[in-house]
Nucleic acid binder design. Sequence first.
DNA 1: TTGAAAGCGATACCAG
DNA 2: CTGGTATCGCTTTCAA
Lengths: 348, 348
Amino acid sequence: MRYVMVQIPKTPAPASPVPRSVPTSADVARLAGVSRATVSYVLNNTSAVRISEPTRRRVHEAAKELGYVPHAAARSLRAGHSRMVLMPAPSFPVGPLYHQFISDLQWELGRLDYTVVQYGAVGLQGDEAARSWAELRPVAVLVPGSGLGPKGVTVLKRSGARAVVTLGPESVEGAHALLMDHEAVGRCAATHLHARGRRRIGVVVPQEPGLESFSAPRLEGVRSALRGTAATVTELPLAYDEMSAARLAARWSERGLDAVFAYNDEYAMLLMRALQDEGVDIPGDTAVIGADDLMLGRLLRPRLTTVNLELPSGRDLAELVDRAVRDPGGAPETHKVLGASVVHRDSS
Amino acid sequence: MRYVMVQIPKTPAPASPVPRSVPTSADVARLAGVSRATVSYVLNNTSAVRISEPTRRRVHEAAKELGYVPHAAARSLRAGHSRMVLMPAPSFPVGPLYHQFISDLQWELGRLDYTVVQYGAVGLQGDEAARSWAELRPVAVLVPGSGLGPKGVTVLKRSGARAVVTLGPESVEGAHALLMDHEAVGRCAATHLHARGRRRIGVVVPQEPGLESFSAPRLEGVRSALRGTAATVTELPLAYDEMSAARLAARWSERGLDAVFAYNDEYAMLLMRALQDEGVDIPGDTAVIGADDLMLGRLLRPRLTTVNLELPSGRDLAELVDRAVRDPGGAPETHKVLGASVVHRDSS
DNA sequence: TTGAAAGCGATACCAG
DNA sequence: CTGGTATCGCTTTCAA
């Protein structure tokens, strides 16, 4: 049942009259009795020009009185460039790890005097999306996931973006790349399980949309790590709810799996609980390993073994962006930025 | 230890030459052999004017050849308004609930032809921040949390924002408000615990910064629900790590608490595990209740009792925004938008 | 020390 | 049907 918003009756609303028009620097100039140029000089503290103290005061007072706020679009139009770093808002559900990363990044870019803008470009696909980003004339674009093609990169560069950085599984021609090597996550998990004697290995693949670009390489990583061994790999579709987990667990013994890599800790916890409820002994009958090293994984019993992922520091990425902006001609850099390492606990 | 980005050696980079200048509609006009006006008509499908088919083709071809992308800032400068809905990126860590809400909202506003932009204004405080938002001349501003004062609202309105909506614990003069009544969450939890005979009630208060604006009202809600009863309320500071939880649990018996409301499910899970490790029986010795109704709370044993929060639908909020934009003179609406209800499981 | 004016890119009015 | 042109708000050169 959908929750319905309930309006609270209002005390006689003053309904503050909408100001007829937004004050411009011309209004400030008029009120202060100076020219627009002078206003600009004063408000921007232009050092190339000296303005008398009385004039400065008059301008500042006029600006305050009118509630003047400069118009960013007009300014950057005139300047011919902006310091906006655009980031399409990720369409997939992000975990705390990624959220922390974004926050850091915003902070660090802020320190370098960039302005970070997350753009909600829902509904547009690939090059369409790139076009709509280009309309904002950002100085740099940071694209998470794998939605950008070489064509999109060209569009962005042609429209003045001095740096295009992708943050995903593969690098794109012409753009800097932060390679999130999700295959390494799968390899890491698989190697661990194999080393501990497991041979019939299941891999959970979330059914939630938007996660394929992570789950597919993780699965492929498992496959590649086990290639040439006697171990088998079984794909296990799983939705993020208890029913789906129960269904999977109910027929567990039929599959004869002795280990499972569960995509991440959340799916791992879900599945582990369902298996335990079915009487499967963990890690005796089946080993379970997750990924992301969530705090909560340590709370289950047995404590969950996991693959710890280390994202690049926001600072490093901010510096990469800044470097690229300053030297747009430079060769695209490609960095591997997923430190994957097993944290062995009790579930494997 | 900080993970260091490793650069991968590049094959001889073609270092695509930066295009000398960004194509404008004038360039398109020149190439197509028409005037800028005609270009504008063609590319915007202006219906008030008929352009011959051959001309249209020439314009489209020229635009494609040059990779022309219109300049959003110039356009909105000329138009005198934009359809940008600005949302300061929340500074607090957001859960899956909130993330889903934002996604929905973006989608729904997109359907109404608005463009949602999350603005990373880290480091600025209150009215400073409002000023920097106003520079972007958004048509509407959606402010999560409690960082906006009446003064900020005025600044935004003066600079042309036709709707200002706050999404937080209290309403602000002049702005529409979506009241997230976190006190209700605390009241809900406290009432439940009290009804089940608990009298010495602890309330977890996270030590992580940025959460005060949620935790304080939740605590106050507990207090107000128990006012006039014999029950006592004890504040329990807790950081989100196992050590902190263990420390708290170690001295649990001294406190003689028979119930705890743990801020949310994550803190509840953390604390519950620590208590169990100390031999505290749940719910026998101490009842535990969380909030947010996370999937993972159902995985612990005993299953975690929680307060389910229902956020408004993105669609409702999108419609509120649209309504406000169309009728900026209308009285500010105030809606209560947190449906809080106890989900009773086994930990209480 | 201050002011006049050009121009950033796109659009819409009014003539032709 | 198409082209000139004024205009949005701001910065910055050049003159005064």
